[in-house]
């Protein structure tokens, strides 16, 4: 039995996950402990509380007494057309916005991976939008997009494009809000993918260059496969967040005009914090959670992410 502190050389060749050195048995638990502690202490109570509330008809508008109503809220949710409309709208919003952001982020990461004078400065501008507080983003874009008084329509009028409605018309509001979302969050995907790109080893690229591979071929066969985990992560995180988009959209449109941008989070906020129907609102929140979970699981399976991860970790 190897003593702790000495290395059992043959065991190491099996791959690190198997090669837990003697005495390292407790290490993973120790490493995971802080996270689990934080999750349990801070995360568990709100979770249980909201689960409990979802089984009642608690509404503080009417005072603090409430009664237990079982699954009535969930049953009500299934017949709530407005809720399912919001879910559908949010799925569409998420899909389009993340797809656009991803494409833009990958292209920009490739572009800025080159060493050119001034690129570092230009790259900095790319990172800033996601750092601005959503309230300011919402207000700035709301002003810029005003049909009669906004600077965007003014600039467009200079080049002869007539009066766009941006976020003030039901037909263009969703597109406008997606534009703002892409503007705001492409930097997020960019920074992760860019960091991933920068971390890639040089040798495969050198080998490809020696083989005479062109840009596109190198990208498709060398870059993309190596970048896949990072891309999937960035997309996954972005999808989970896009589903919860609230501040920016609310400030620009308040869910309108005429429900064109009544995203899930806007609807939930209305039920929970305007109408204060907390019982129902909690039930809706839980259903929303399940929906996101399903979306994430489908996505993760489609991209073969789990298999990828398992392969890497068992190497």
């Amino acid at each position: 039995m190897a003593k702790s502190g000495t290395i059992n050389a043959p065991a190491l060749q099996l791959g690190a996950t198997k090669a837990v050195r003697a005495g390292e048995k407790s290490v993973p638990t120790l490493l995971l402990a802080p996270t689990m502690i934080i999750m349990t202490i801070v995360g568990l109570y709100p979770l249980l509380h909201s689960l409990y509330i979802s089984l009642t008809n608690y509404n503080p508008t009417f005072g603090t007494s409430y009664s237990f109503i079982g699954f009535a809220n969930y049953a009500r949710a299934f017949g709530d057309g407005q809720f399912w409309y919001s879910v559908g709208l949010t799925l569409a919003f998420t899909a389009i916005s993340v797809a656009l952001s991803l494409t833009l982020a990958v292209l920009l990461a490739l572009l800025f991976n080159q060493y050119r004078f001034g690129f570092v400065v230009l790259r900095t501008f790319l990172l800033i939008p996601m750092l601005i507080t959503p309230i300011a983003v919402g207000i700035t874009w709301r002003t810029m997009m005003m049909p009669d008084l906004g600077v965007l329509n003014y600039l467009l009028s200079l080049i002869g494009v007539s009066h766009l409605s941006w976020a003030s018309s039901p037909s263009s509001a969703l597109a406008s809000v997606i534009l703002v979302d892409v503007w705001q969050w492409t930097p997020f995907m960019f920074i992760i993918i860019f960091a991933g790109l920068r971390s890639l080893p040089k040798s495969p690229f050198e080998a490809a260059a020696i083989d005479g591979a062109g840009h596109l071929a190198t990208f498709m066969n060398v870059t993309l496969p190596m970048l896949k985990p990072v891309i999937v992560i960035a997309t996954l995180l972005r999808v989970v967040d896009a589903f919860r988009t609230y501040d920016t959209v609310y400030i620009i449109t308040r869910g309108g005009p005429d429900f064109a941008t009544d995203l899930l989070s806007v609807y939930l906020q209305r039920v929970n914090f305007r109408i204060f129907d907390l019982g129902y609102g909690s039930a809706l929140s839980w259903i929303a959670l399940v929906i996101v979970l399903v979306v994430v699981l489908v996505f993760v399976n489609l991209t073969g992410f789990l298999k990828l991860v398992a392969d890497k970790e068992n190497r």
């Binding site: 008084l149 009066h163 409605s165 941006w166 003030s168 018309s169 509001a173 449109t253």
Partner: peptide, 21 residues
């Protein structure tokens, strides 16, 4: 009414009046 009226709230209304639109 001005174009975009479907999306107007108080802030837009007073801006529009203030700027004479």
């Amino acid at each position: 009414t001005p174009k975009g009226v479907e999306g107007f709230d108080y802030a837009e209304g007073s801006s529009i009046m203030q700027q004479g639109k």
